[in-house]
Design a protein around this nucleic acid. Structure first.
Length: 199
DNA sequence: CCTGCGATTTGCT
DNA sequence: GCAAATCGCAGGC
């Protein structure tokens, strides 16, 4: 896969169904301060969705989700991990895409240093907590604009890859909805791997 | 290969 | 007060 020379994603890309956005983000480039790679795994969360933070309505925390599309929603999970989401749908409609895994392409050395220990490329960004740690993304990026530096988001360099879907990971509510999207056959997605047809 | 568990902070009940 | 959109390690098979 190639990196970053295709058109940058604009607000329009996020101003529509969160599920379409999540699916079409597969194959797009995500870079933060020069580190990043190709998105290979996402999940969508919509407002009338018990697993979505916005399900409880408008609070201080969910204010970003109800805001304009094309911004970052970052929150702390299990008191340890910052999880990166892209806000979608028109302002007033709360929805977001959780970025779960990327195939690392740029800034490998800096990412490995931030992650500590020794990690292969396969383990560097294969999970929502891993990739934020590798890219250096934290709560400071909450409610910031994805269309401006240090974020760089690009459309797929060529044909977007085939996508497989499955149930979302790590939630306890609405576990049956098929809103997890992965690049078919990619070894860079988190576990459990989606079951992909061999032919 | 798999299962279980602790770390650690926040937001809402 | 407690559950949480996770991770890495230990130990068993």
């Amino acid at each position: 896969m190639k990196s970053a020379s295709e058109p940058r994603l604009t607000t329009d890309f996020f101003d529509r169904s969160v599920h379409a956005v999540a699916r079409e983000l597969i194959g797009c480039g995500l870079f933060f301060d020069g580190c990043g790679g190709t998105i290979v795994e996402t999940e969508s969360y919509e407002r009338d969705d018990p697993a979505c933070h916005a399900y409880v309505g408008l609070t201080e925390r969910t204010r970003v989700l109800f805001g304009p599309p094309g911004r970052a929603y970052v929150y702390l999970s299990y008191g340890i991990h910052s999880l990166l989401n892209f806000v979608a749908e028109p302002e007033g409609d709360a929805a977001a895409v959780l970025i779960r895994a990327i195939e690392p392409i740029a800034g490998l050395e800096r990412m490995r240093a931030r992650r500590g220990k020794k990690h292969s490329d396969l383990d560097l960004c294969s999970g929502p907590g891993k990739l934020t740690e590798a890219l250096g993304i934290g709560l400071a990026q909450n409610d910031t604009d994805l269309g401006r530096d240090p974020f760089q988001l690009f459309a797929p360099a060529g044909e977007p890859p085939p996508v497989v879907v499955g149930p979302r990971i790590g939630i306890t509510k609405a576990v049956d909805r098929p809103w997890r999207f992965c690049a078919a056959g990619s070894p860079f997605v988190s576990r459990p791997r989606p079951q992909v047809p061999t032919a």
